[in-house]
Write a protein that binds this DNA or RNA. Sequence first.
DNA 1: CATGAATGAGAGTTCATTCAT
DNA 2: GATGAATGAACTCTCATTCAT
Lengths: 225, 225, 225, 225
Amino acid sequence: MARSSAPTRRSTVQQDSTDPRDLRHQALADVRRQSVLDAARATFVELGMEKTSMRLIAQRAGYTVGALYSYFASKEEVYGALLAESLERLNQRVRQALDGVADPAQRLRGSATAFFGFYRENPRDLDLGFYLFQGMTPRGLTPELNEKLNARLRDALQPTQEALQELGLPTQRALEEVTALFAHTVGLLVLSHTGRIRMFKQASQDLFNTYLQQLLGRTSAGAKG
Amino acid sequence: MARSSAPTRRSTVQQDSTDPRDLRHQALADVRRQSVLDAARATFVELGMEKTSMRLIAQRAGYTVGALYSYFASKEEVYGALLAESLERLNQRVRQALDGVADPAQRLRGSATAFFGFYRENPRDLDLGFYLFQGMTPRGLTPELNEKLNARLRDALQPTQEALQELGLPTQRALEEVTALFAHTVGLLVLSHTGRIRMFKQASQDLFNTYLQQLLGRTSAGAKG
Amino acid sequence: MARSSAPTRRSTVQQDSTDPRDLRHQALADVRRQSVLDAARATFVELGMEKTSMRLIAQRAGYTVGALYSYFASKEEVYGALLAESLERLNQRVRQALDGVADPAQRLRGSATAFFGFYRENPRDLDLGFYLFQGMTPRGLTPELNEKLNARLRDALQPTQEALQELGLPTQRALEEVTALFAHTVGLLVLSHTGRIRMFKQASQDLFNTYLQQLLGRTSAGAKG
Amino acid sequence: MARSSAPTRRSTVQQDSTDPRDLRHQALADVRRQSVLDAARATFVELGMEKTSMRLIAQRAGYTVGALYSYFASKEEVYGALLAESLERLNQRVRQALDGVADPAQRLRGSATAFFGFYRENPRDLDLGFYLFQGMTPRGLTPELNEKLNARLRDALQPTQEALQELGLPTQRALEEVTALFAHTVGLLVLSHTGRIRMFKQASQDLFNTYLQQLLGRTSAGAKG
DNA sequence: CATGAATGAGAGTTCATTCAT
DNA sequence: GATGAATGAACTCTCATTCAT
């Protein structure tokens, strides 16, 4: 996990000390950091980006506003951590969808639909991503964190790409297709979320299914079927 | 063009007084309003949504803050006007792409590519749309303006839908395809814009072309080809 | 009427010129000034003190904001004029109540009740008076206007005092009683208007009648009765 | 005393934590809140309602504007607190006037005169009441605070009513008389305060005494005397 | 005379962040 | 480490008044 820039904090996974007192401190700090994140997520889900302030997060977490800065160096770091968490949940959902499924076509459908479904059901998680790439200062999104987040996003798309390869697409084609699928998914979600075109509210799922079907048709499975 | 509710302004489309003094005043007012809008757009393009304030717009327009409120009743009205303008430019570009083109397949490619190209080259225009559909209060985005903006967006997609119908798709299918195309386009643009996946910066155009090609393949033109 | 301090305006009653062109100008100016006042009164009655701005008055009068300053040197002068008008209407109502009434007790009741009734039915006219004596700068309320307004207020109370004298009270006693009656009236009106004590809304009229009855009892009419 | 809704404050009357650190914090917070209130009152007494702004209060209290909002959620809450304080002082004065006085007639005179005297000597306290009942938004004047303020006002009038009953008036009559007395008092005060009739400055006390004397005359004490 | 655009100061309010305790 | 009061700059918006045309 990326280190925050706050002075006295310890990273969660970097264990540079075996002093048991340090370890206990570390565990406590992690728990508290997590409780702050929980409050932040809840507030954010309820009120959205604009109305979520550090004060409010502190309040709901049962901390003082100053305490937040012991765990996060800035507001944007909070969002960075939220996004990391969000991507973790996304990956978890994708993995669950694949659990015990062997058929490549099913794996393609499962992983892609899990991805789509996750953001469809949790539109705030979509906001999270956009916020970070629009309003974020260098301070909040370090290159390391950025790379880590990118990696987790690729992880979530990886099973889909692999399924495409299992279905006969060469690596490069599979990469292109998964990228296009990703874009299509995001487009549907964004339009559905902003509600710009009323039709989307109901139809985004159908449009997604159709695209997925066409994609399957471009694989050997589709060629055979 | 619909006018704001600010007190001392007169609409351009109202019953035209033939008093030449009125006309000159109106023209002057329009010029000034436009100069404010220009400053707003420039500021917004340079600094983005979040950092663009009325103060800043005023500064760059060479006005005091109070003067802005002679032209726009609120900050959100400024954005409403900016978006309206943006959609106007979008439509213009789409129309130009169709000018003198008779072949339906070419018309499909032309209009869709114009749409995509417009936002690819002017990413802030994309922001504009999203902002309005997330943060806007009733005051800034009146139902009338909202309807107008929706209509202009539909206008920009209309030629693409018509081309699809000319290429043999029934109305319903054409509507679905243009919606899917719209989503795909937006997805590519959003990902390209946020720079989430580095590949997109170069590849979004290719991916768009590929999607367009597949779409053509789903029409009679494609069936024949 | 008090002269405004605006440079090029002419007073309504001061006729320092017999040039017929001046007279016509004067008449026109008076008409316009009156129409501004009408708009001001209407706005003020509808929206109250706080929300009535020069812009709004100008708008409703069909003038530009600059034009208002041709007729009134400041916002407070507008209110001064409104109050003068209000006192005129008050006096008119008091006179009407006395018209054709000879019996002193009836005249007492009539004039006092007219006074009370006027403000009870037109609570904004009460506001007017208070505003001028709280927020007013020297500029708006010149000593001359102040004296004039005071005189008109005394005029409205004069018939009541005279009735008291006709009923046998010596001048000094009559003055005291009319002053006390005035205070009582204002107190009832203010409390009724602010709605602080709910009872007042219904009871202020009863309380007024009771006070009036007691007052009558303190005159020879009361002594006899 | 009821506390404002500002985020980081704690109520004085909440279940008292016995943590001495909490207590000290609370005491400090109360002191600071009080110092803001003192500055607000002073500013208000000196400059009046209209010219008292949050900036000015902050300046005089030696705080920045933002700090004020730690103690009061809005400008109107400041005024609410000021009025509450004012009513407290009023009640205190009324109680003092009754201390050790047994004779009902004396109690009537004492409590009523205390009420009158309080506002006569502190005219800004009168303003306070009027302001709150005219311009206050729901945020500043919550129903609870409103009820509390009303109750304190009734408290201040209660001894007078009780004295009237002790002097032989039935409950209903006593209520009417105290209401009329209240109105008379307010009327005298308002006129004295606005200086509308110059005479009032000197005579309002005499007029009050006279009214009080007449009132006494309408009780059994008066009947006997 | 009238216009109405423009001023300029000021309003209330919010908020991420800091720092003495 | 935690506190939470305080900062200070920023925000949108309002308004009486002025003045070149």
